[in-house]
Design a protein around this nucleic acid. Structure first.
Length: 374
RNA sequence: GCGACUGUAGCUCAGCGGUAGAGCUCUCGGUUGUGGUCCGAGUGGUCGCGGGUUCGAGCCCCGUCAGUCGCC
């Protein structure tokens, strides 16, 4: 069985379609909840599915260190291990090495580093990253890259991008021919148009099953990110999925989809769910704020998630203050539900050719802000 | 009844001659290819009470009240 990407409709630059895989379809634009350590924190897999997620993201870096890719392979692969039988996309490990590990050393060959867990030494090369992601059983494998930091000079960005392109070729070579599995290349080049173009050309000449925009949402701010997407997205092949890595807030997502992005992932809804930050159609709400302590109303009266149907703001406030585990469970569920509802709204609007109206409503409701205190 | 020790922010404590600090709490803000994290800002004290010494006292002296422990 093989994979395919079909575009069903476009509206301006925005697109909607389906990525078909042996493990099921992925409706695009898609938001992928992040399940770093073989779990979407605070959520049961069936609950993640119930929010509307078609695909999860898992992390090479974390899983190679614990419990190790070889152990997951012996136990039947990541899907069986974590009880998620739908598609999984795995990050290549490059970003986490740079953001989490100590004593990193980057060479032409790859990256050596010390584990943030026990200090043990490890190396990831493009070849090793492909092997790990194969052992995990990943459906969508990401090429090994270096996420260029921001800010950086043009010269640094260029050097970093070209290294990632050489690694992209090695990733392609090491990945081989694996029917039913996809390999995505990652465009770099920071915020520089000429570098983004050179990177896109390099990736296209190698040929991938999908193309990611990397190196954004790393501190440049939303305006700069969207300005970069204005030119970067269109450089990537129109007939393949385009994945914006690590994004983002709801308004980032709307802005990215508007510019032709098909897939995104972000820790925000799940991490926020554990830190009392709620995301709703009306914006961001901090459930720890004292104004909720006597409020019997749901977080969002129009939301159909189990949290909003069954629990009050006062209860959410209380369990966060008391640091009860159910706090993260309830709010993560709501946040993921909201994100998936947003994606469905985007897909429907693009399909109906009403993206602009959807976007206007989206911003108008957020501008109103959260419901007034009691 | 006697002795020792202790009384400083809501809590736990530091400061021991130059007109008060920390952590937590509390009130908020932040978190974008995840370490249930971390970062940032703010509110908050007649230093148990009353005298005294000193230019100046949480800090030294006297008294007093309260608590803890020990002894009778």
């Amino acid at each position: 069985m093989s994979t395919s990407f079909t575009l069903d409709a476009t509206d301006g630059m925005a697109r909607t379609g389906v990525i078909s895989t042996p493990r099921g379809d992925i409706r695009t634009p898609a938001f992928m909840p992040v399940g770093t350590a073989a779990t979407v924190k605070a959520m049961m897999p069936e609950s993640v599915r119930a929010t509307g997620a078609d695909i999860l993201l898992g992390n090479t870096y974390h899983l190679m260190l614990r419990p190790t890719a070889e152990r997951i392979d012996r136990l039947g692969g990541l899907h069986k291990f974590m009880n998620w039988d739908r598609p999984i996309l795995t990050d290549s490990g490059g970003f986490q090495v740079m953001s989490l590990a100590a004593l990193r050393k980057l060479t032409e060959s790859g990256v050596t580093f010390k584990s943030h867990i026990d200090g043990s030494r490890h190396e990831i090369t493009p070849e090793r990253s492909m092997e790990i992601q194969r052992l995990l059983g990943s459906d969508i494998v990401m090429a090994f890259d270096e996420c260029t930091p921001y800010p950086c000079t043009e010269a640094q960005a260029l050097e970093s991008m070209r290294l990632s392109m050489r690694w992209a070729q090695r990733s392609r070579d090491a990945f081989g021919d694996r029917p039913g599995h996809m390999l995505f290349g990652i465009q770099q080049g920071s915020v520089f148009a000429d570098q983004r173009a050179e990177s896109a050309e390099a990736l296209k000449s190698i040929s991938f099953d999908g193309y990611a925009v990397g190196g954004l949402a790393v501190g440049e701010g939303q305006e700069m990110m969207l300005r970069t997407l204005d030119f970067a997205t269109d450089m990537l092949p129109a007939d393949k999925p385009r994945y914006l890595m690590g994004v983002g807030k709801p308004d980032d997502i709307v802005g990215a989809v508007k510019r032709g992005i098909d897939m995104m992932d972000c820790v925000l809804p799940s991490r926020s769910g554990r830190t009392a930050q709620a995301w709703t159609r009306r914006g961001q709400v901090n459930m720890k704020n004292a104004r909720h302590q006597d409020d019997p109303r749901p977080l969002d009266e129009d939301c159909t998630c189990p949290t909003c149907r069954q629990y009050s703001r006062a209860y959410l406030h209380h369990v966060f203050r008391a640091q009860e585990m159910i706090s993260g469970m309830l709010l993560t569920w709501h946040n993921l539900h909201y994100y998936q509802e947003l994606m469905q709204g985007l897909r429907d609007a693009i399909g109906a050719g009403t993206f602009e109206a959807f976007e206007a409503r989206f911003h108008a409701l957020r501008a109103e802000g959260d419901i007034a205190p009691l």
